[in-house]
Write a protein that binds this DNA or RNA. Structure first.
Lengths: 252, 252
DNA sequence: TGTCTACATATTGAATACAAAAAATCTACG
DNA sequence: CGTAGATTTTTTGTATTCAATATGTAGACA
């Protein structure tokens, strides 16, 4: 097995630039800065109590990571994913995750690593039990947060086993974009959670039985299901906002 | 088939920042700024006749693209790929290219697109003929350039058929890094060219016969062979520079 | 001679100032 | 009224200045 990769990304970074980066990203993630909304360097600088310079640099970075979009001499806006963007992002994810799981499965993953995957997977099962116990139909916000952490952790850990920081970085950025812009997922019920847990468990089983083709097939399917959900959501939102717009058109 | 994607990346960009970006990148690509060498904002600004500001922004972008490496309050250096970096980069390429060729092959590529691939592939064959005709054992610089163009074009075109600009971007950046830092390939002879052409032709054949698995296998092998060459080259260089260093150590 | 501290120098990070371009507003004219 | 053009305002792009941090060096002292 490959040695643990050098930790070159250890940047405590007390720079204002980094603070600006965190600040802007969190405001995008929270939906505070809406998709398609304009970004004002001056305003952000004021809010941060800094000059425009570090804000500009943070914006540059966010542009290169795909969260913002810039047109010269015009300005910067929060990216607005199209339907095709979602498809493209999921393809990218699928290509890389599938590659990694094939590699990982071929290379005989240590038992303790399998255990860690199962732990994360069981976190989802725990949420199912909570729902069953309380009788609530859907996850509340805090539980939803735990679900996202567990689900994300599962995939992140799987990617970590590739020992390829570059693949990891691309997948992380891809997942970030999807999460921020194509995911307002609400109302996860016990049934859906059970399905997802089942998929994760099936993937782990395929890894344990050292069947790369099966692992690939199951992970690909898992991702494609997730993709379809995002697309359905996107279509629903678009239909909704189109209707909304029609109404406001009538008001003119 | 998917519609042609919107051309959002059309930036003529007369900004100094963009000039600085081009300038620095070309100096890295030419080997003028050596791997591991320090980057001076002030010096580059002077050379460009500009201030540090646009240079800084260009540097930021190059950092995010992986050509430069930055440590806060210390400075910026041209990235120096390790052996593992090369392995990682080739894995990334393989994951994405393999995914794309599978997709493309399944989707029945139009004849004219196949023709375009063949055209590029034949460009390599033409070089073989030139070598045979002139009796030269190896490609000269100009021919080498044409080979790189043809070889790169083949893969780029293949990726273009995916109609996924995000995958294309990642592959492009990956290939750029490999080309700049892990490729000082010289002395390509007729035999090597024939092999590469054969591999390309075999890949095209697999696409034509609409056999995704075969196409995948052949492309993967093609990439892995290239990877091995880079690694061998890397090891040779390292051995050479190690010996060199031993000598200079003796001189102390 | 070796090491530690103080000072000098260089370089990055950030703030401010200025210029140029685009957007918004206003005005004159049809 | 509406529109074309001019003017004002805003915003981006660039230059310059200032501050903080790190590096290099010289000299004092053990």
């Amino acid at each position: 097995m490959r040695a643990k990769t050098k930790a070159k990304s250890s940047k405590p970074n007390y720079t204002i630039r980094e603070k600006a980066y965190q600040y802007i990203q969190s405001r995008i993630a929270s939906g505070d800065l809406p998709s398609g909304g304009a970004i004002s360097e001056l305003l952000l600088a004021k809010e941060l109590g800094s000059s425009r310079t570090p804000v500009r640099e943070a914006i540059s970075q966010l542009v290169s990571e795909g969260l913002l979009e810039q047109t010269p001499n015009r300005g910067t806006v929060v990216v607005q994913l199209t339907r095709e963007d979602i498809v493209d992002l999921y393809e990218l994810r699928e290509a890389l995750e599938v590659y990694v799981i094939a590699k990982v499965t071929r290379e005989h993953l240590p038992v303790e690593d399998i255990k860690r995957l199962e732990l994360l997977s069981n976190g989802i099962l725990a949420l199912v039990n909570e729902l069953d116990a309380t009788g609530e139909p859907y996850l509340n916000t805090e539980q939803m947060q735990r679900f996202i952490t567990a689900d994300r952790g599962f995939h992140t850990l799987l990617m970590a086993f590739s020992f390829n920081p570059r693949i990891r970085k691309v997948v992380d950025e891809t997942r970030l974009l999807i999460r921020i812009f194509a995911m307002r997922r609400l109302g996860y019920g016990a049934e859906k959670l059970r399905k997802i847990h089942g998929q994760h468990a099936a993937i782990i089983a395929a890894i344990v039985s050292e069947d790369p083709a099966l692992a690939v097939q199951r992970l690909a399917e898992h991702i494609q299901i997730s993709r379809q959900e995002r697309l359905d959501e996107f279509d629903r939102n678009r239909r909704a906002s189109t209707i909304e717009r029609s109404y406001s058109d009538l008001n003119l």
